[in-house]
Nucleic acid binder design. Sequence first.
RNA 1: GGGCAGUUAGCUCAGUUGGAUAGAGCGUUGGCCUCCGGAGCCAAAGGCCACAGGUUCGAAUCCUGUACUGCCCA
Length: 557
Amino acid sequence: MRAITHLRSLLSEALAGMGIPWPEKTTIEPPRDATFGDLATNVAMMAAKAAGKKPRDLAEALRQSIMAADPGLTAEVAGPGFLNVTFPPAFWQATIADVLEKDAGGGYGRSDLGGGKKIQVEYVSANPTGPLHIGHGRGAALGDTLARILRAAGYDVSTEYYINDAGRQMRLLGDSIWLRYRELHGRDVVWPEDWYKGEYIIDLARELSDLHGADLFSMPEEKATAICQTYGVDSIMAGIKKDLADFRVSHEVWFSEKTLVSGGRVETTLSDLKSRGLAYEKDGALWFASQNLGDDKDRVLRKSSGELTYFASDICYHADKFARGFEVVVDIWGADHHGYVPRMAAAVQALGKSPDSLRVILVQLVNLLRGGEQVAMSTRAGKFETLADVVAEVGADAARFMFLSRKSDSHLDFDLDLVKRQTMDNPVYYVQYAHARVKSLFAKATERGIAAGTPDAALLSRLVTPEDLGLLRQIEQFPDVVATAAATFSPHVISYYLRDLAGRLHSYYAAHQVLATGDEELTRARMHLLDAVARVVRAGLALLGVSAPEKMERSEP
RNA sequence: GGGCAGUUAGCUCAGUUGGAUAGAGCGUUGGCCUCCGGAGCCAAAGGCCACAGGUUCGAAUCCUGUACUGCCCA
């Protein structure tokens, strides 16, 4: 971050001196090949046209200009007009002080990219009709981590869970519990086609029975099923909250659909749409004119039976989000809901918001495997691996890291046996080990009475090997990586970065002695380097919601 | 029949939004300190970036078409 910021300001001053505006599409980034230098920029190629010069000629002019402005830099013109820039070792050594200072004051890696913009992330939002399964876990890990990353990048983030506690699915839940309750008490039961068959329904019925005995039979069936429904929703929501907490996933706001519907607010939204000509009555139903707004066809808001659709409350819900002042609203959905995106986008437009104020992130399905064999999942049939079971089996750290190691829009094979394995198939341990290794080294240093002391510039000037500078460059990039992850809504770039950093640390460890250098100054300098690396590893893992242990416990020999 | 997503090494996947010789891990093969934790390190082999066109100084990346795979909708 420091390097790119510094170079950008030098270049833009140089360009301004020539009367050329800064080209929007300029990139400044580490080149693929390290022999090209620390940073490479295509600015001369981008600005060549405006400057009326050949790219290489402009690059040469810029080269001289920035080297005059900062004599520590070296720069070369390469290829079609790249400018390759190399910073002096002292610049990279100063990264350590930067890490220490920021780590103490709120966290290294933070930036103000978001500029305090209010953004909301809504995730999981599973219907309270059963426990969370592994697929919800992926959305949960993604949403929770994305929120952490956006906060680190300077956004004002609020997290939310939308509880679908109104409508048909809820009645179905109440009825299912009621039928199980009847069954428990030996009453005759006619099983309908559509009901929740999971074991947990029987548990709920049994709990109700313990609570009320046979009292439910003494009241009208309507009231009894209502009691069943309320009890079921409350109990299932409590379970969901616990499962999420165990997975280190939090939500600041739990928003109930029922409060929208029963408060009449959905009707208010609908009449508003109607008055603006965006909704109309036809065949006894109320329709949303979404086709004019990019959807395939118009959608029903209120059926001829008078029942409101989920879509109607979803529009109202999003109107509420925007009314609360969020500039951007992020919805994380399972990929099987992708057909829902165009109508929601149409709704956002109907609410008078720009299309980019809604960002829908689709999370592809999770293929749950055990030893390469597929594990079947179906909520209705009651056969599935719950998130709680998976977390209990493999641990939150390993599960989160696995979910966050893939782009959200690609399918994920989640093999329980593999996620438990403590090898490189499963890099969470590799990254955690890098942190533990440094900590363990420091414990050893304390034992031997070695203290790192103050990391002043003179001491750090001893860090000059390619491995020293490689590590320094990499930790210097961490704030850029966080910014990229935030800008592209891609938590997985953090986990890839951490794997690289851990790899470099392990290589360093094998290549260089730290405590036994026979040179006290060098030892202390290297301790500061590794301390900074460990802080960055910990900061990165914290963004992923993964712990950074002081020592690794081997669970199997 | 429409729509969305995907296709990169034997396998699982990255690829910084169009840059220089396409990268990791696993697996395979061969090495490593009586040493700060070997859960580690070093190296080799392995590629028509699904296929065919197009856009430009430059394409795995953007556009069009085709073929498979998964999902959604009629």
